[in-house]
C-alpha cells in the first residue's frame, strides 16, 4: 500500500515544480518587458527634450536678432545689423549681476551670446569676439546648442559696415 502513495506524492511534487517554473519564467519575461518599455520611453523623452531645447535656441536667436538694444539706428541698413557701440554697451552692462542682467535672463535664460567680427579681420591682440551675455551653469554641468546668425556690424564712429556673426549658445543643465 505505501508504494502507490509515494508515487502520487512525487507526481504532485513534479506538477507543483512545473507550475512554479512557469510562474518564474512568466515573471522574468514580464520584468524584461517592463525594462524594455521603460527604456523606449526614456529614449523618446530624450528626443523630445532635444527638440524643445532646439526650439528654445531658435526662439533666443529670433529675440537677439530683433532686439532693439542691438539694432543699427542708421536708416537704410539691413535688418540683420548690429550697432557695435550698442553691443559694447550691452556687454559692459551685462558683465556683472544686477537688475539689467535679471531682465535679460527673463528673455534669454541660460545662454551665451557672442558677437564675432569676421571682416574687417581683427587686428593685433583683439580676437574680434565680444561676449554680450553669458549666464548659465558651470562648464561641466551643461550641454550646448549653438546657432550662428550672420549680421552686419556697423561702427558709427568709423562709419564702417563689417561682417559679423552672432553666436547663440543655449545651455541645458545636465545635473540638478
Amino acid at each position: 500500500m505505501p508504494l502507490p502513495l509515494l508515487s502520487n506524492d512525487k507526481k504532485a511534487q513534479i506538477q507543483i515544480g512545473e507550475s512554479m517554473l512557469v510562474i518564474i519564467f512568466v515573471l522574468i519575461i514580464g520584468v524584461i518587458a517592463l525594462v524594455f518599455v521603460a527604456r523606449m520611453q526614456e529614449d523618446k523623452i530624450a528626443v523630445r527634450l532635444d527638440e524643445y531645447e532646439s526650439l528654445n535656441a531658435v526662439e533666443t536667436a529670433q529675440l537677439v536678432t530683433n532686439l532693439y538694444d542691438l539694432r543699427c539706428a542708421k536708416p537704410g541698413l539691413t535688418e540683420t545689423c548690429v550697432d557695435l557701440h550698442k553691443a559694447k554697451a550691452v556687454a559692459s552692462i551685462l558683465e556683472d549681476p544686477g537688475p539689467a542682467r535679471d531682465y535679460y535672463y527673463s528673455l534669454f535664460k541660460d545662454a551665451r551670446i557672442t558677437l564675432v567680427q569676421a571682416y574687417p579681420p581683427p587686428a593685433g591682440t583683439d580676437d574680434g569676439k565680444l561676449v554680450l551675455y553669458d549666464v548659465g551653469p558651470g562648464e561641466g554641468n551643461r550641454t550646448t546648442t549653438a546657432l550662428h546668425i550672420p549680421v552686419s556690424v556697423h561702427n558709427a564712429s568709423a562709419n564702417t559696415l563689417g561682417f559679423g556673426m552672432l553666436v547663440i549658445e543655449r545651455y541645458r543643465r545636465t545635473s540638478i
Binding site: 541698413l77 539691413t78 540683420t80 571682416y119 546668425i149 550672420p150 549680421v151 552686419s152 564702417t160 559696415l161 563689417g162 561682417f163 559679423g164
Partner: peptide, 10 residues
C-alpha cells in the same frame, strides 16, 4: 543671410 550681409559689407 550670409550673402545679403556679405554684399553689404564695405
Amino acid at each position: 543671410d550670409f550673402l545679403t550681409v556679405l554684399l553689404e559689407t564695405q
